[in-house]
Design a protein around this nucleic acid. Structure first.
Length: 419
RNA sequence: GGAGGCGUGGCAGAGCGGCCGAAUGCACCUGUCUUGAAAACAGGAGUCCUUCACGGGACCGGGGGUUCAAAUCCCUCCGCCUCCGCCA
């Protein structure tokens, strides 16, 4: 949820944000007027309640005729209060409905526009030159005995796969490398639940426009998470955190589940886009004034990981229309995929400012001891998809794949060879 | 799956339908005392909404009901705990 105080003070900023996202500006004014109506409804109901409270005290003391008269008056007041409360609650519902529909206010420096309007912030490394025809990650994976898509489909359907032998080991090595880096940087490693309650899923902003992306277990009214961001954001919900010592940093290791609804025909080959994958994700709670600096740190940590697996990549500043509901700004790192001759997303670092925290009621005490909404951020350290970039960029003519130096201690071998 | 119990402030734990935002203890903060600390004593201290402010209102798991009036009575949902069974 956006901050209504900020909205009242500077509605134009929110309108500008809606424009940057390519969304409806009128929503802003509808929200403003709903806010106004709610506040007057609250004031009216408060006044009546105060009156009723006073009267109630008198009834307790009165006797005889006086008491009867007061009771009659009380009945009338009770009806008035009931009506005023109904009006208040209607106004509150209407406000809430509009409130949750407004996405986070886009950072003023984020590019406006849609998916293709990103800005490239930098490119690191150069795409490898092969003196042979490079093979894609699926063929490589099959030859290495690392990947079995056919049986994945047999057992679970399309977009499912088995990581087999060295494939499974490779993923563990990647995730362990990520977990080790996170731990070394002061993150608390977490293995969270991957099924969450509706209010947690809603609080993270995934039940809005992206609701169809989320698996739901109807019988139990639980949702399968698409990222450990969800349980980690819920971890401190309804709490007042002590952030005086700095940000709280968590690294969540979990399986992630995505329905990939509406992506028919996209990335159908291999493990680029799948229903289930594993990920180590950084998640941070901090004071709002520290969020932007923390966002830069998350990006730096992602780049540190990419450097360790030695693949060329670029960093993009994602445009407003492609941000998702909760993010104010998002930096993606995209690795070079040789057989596609283009960059593909490997990491994503979002600054959600106070948007998620306000929904989930995560607060901290400011220097005056007042509770305030905290800021939350998240960023990727490693996922199953990284295997794609790793295999393709480090392949050799004989079908073997060189293991990057940093990964060797975790994998135990220097080269993966065809079986 | 079956049986039972419980949900009150940071924690523990009281609470005849009106005088209960709520006793008491612990923890906490501020003073006094002390060279300093401890102890003792005095005081303070929840969250949310609303208001420029004074103030007003809401919150005793959630929702609904009874009543002039509900932490207290009724219904319902949710959560937690214990025991038995089953599974791993």
């Amino acid at each position: 949820m956006i901050d209504l105080r900020t909205l009242r003070e500077d509605p134009e900023a929110v309108r500008a944000s809606q424009r940057a996202r390519g969304e409806d500006e009128a929503l802003v004014d509808a929200l403003l007027s709903a806010d106004e109506r709610r506040r007057s409804a609250v004031a009216a109901a408060d006044t009546l309640r105060a009156e009723q409270k006073q009267l109630g005290k008198q009834v307790g003391l009165a006797r005889g005729e006086e008491r009867d008269a007061l009771l009659t008056k009380g009945k009338q007041l009770a009806a008035d209060v009931r009506a005023a409360e109904a009006a208040q609650s209607a106004a509150e519902d209407e406000l809430a409905k509009l409130h949750v529909a407004v996405p986070n206010v886009v950072h003023p420096d984020a590019p406006a526009g849609g998916e293709d309007d990103y800005v490239v912030l930098k490119e690191v490394g150069t795409p490898p030159e092969f003196d042979f025809e490079p093979v894609d990650h699926l063929d490589l994976g099959v030859r290495l005995g690392a990947l079995d898509i056919e049986r994945g489909a047999k057992v679970s359907g399309s977009r499912f796969y088995f990581l087999t032998g060295v494939g499974a080991q490779l993923q563990l090595a990647l995730l362990n490398l990520a977990a080790a880096q996170a731990t070394a940087n002061g993150f608390t490693l977490m293995i969270p639940p991957v099924l969450v309650r509706p209010e947690i899923m809603a609080g993270t902003g995934f039940l809005g426009a992206h609701a169809s992306e989320v698996y739901r277990l109807a019988d139990d009214d639980l949702y399968l998470v698409g990222t450990s961001e969800v349980p980690l954001a819920g971890y401190h919900s309804d709490e007042i955190l002590d952030l005086s010592a700095g940000p709280r940093r968590y690294a969540g290791w979990s399986s992630c589940f995505r329905r990939e609804a509406g992506s028919y025909g996209k990335d159908t080959r291999g493990i680029i886009r799948v229903h289930q994958f594993d990920k180590v994700e950084m998640f941070v709670y901090c004071r709002p004034e520290d969020a932007e600096a923390e966002h830069a740190r998350l990006l730096a940590w992602e780049e540190e990981m990419l450097a360790k697996i030695e693949v060329p990549y670029r960093v993009i500043d994602v445009a407003g229309g492609d941000l998702g509901m909760s993010a104010a700004r998002k930096f993606d790192c995209e690795a070079w995929v040789p057989t596609q001759a283009r960059y593909r997303e490997l990491t994503s670092a979002s600054n959600c400012t106070t948007f998620q925290a306000r929904r989930l009621s995560v607060r901290y005490r400011d220097e005056n001891g007042r509770p305030q909404a905290a800021a939350t951020l998240n960023g990727t350290l490693a996922t199953t998809r990284w295997i794609v970039a790793l295999l393709e960029n480090h392949q050799q003519a004989d079908g073997s794949v060189l293991v990057p130096e940093a990964l060797r201690p975790f994998l135990g071998v220097e080269v993966l060879r065809p079986v």
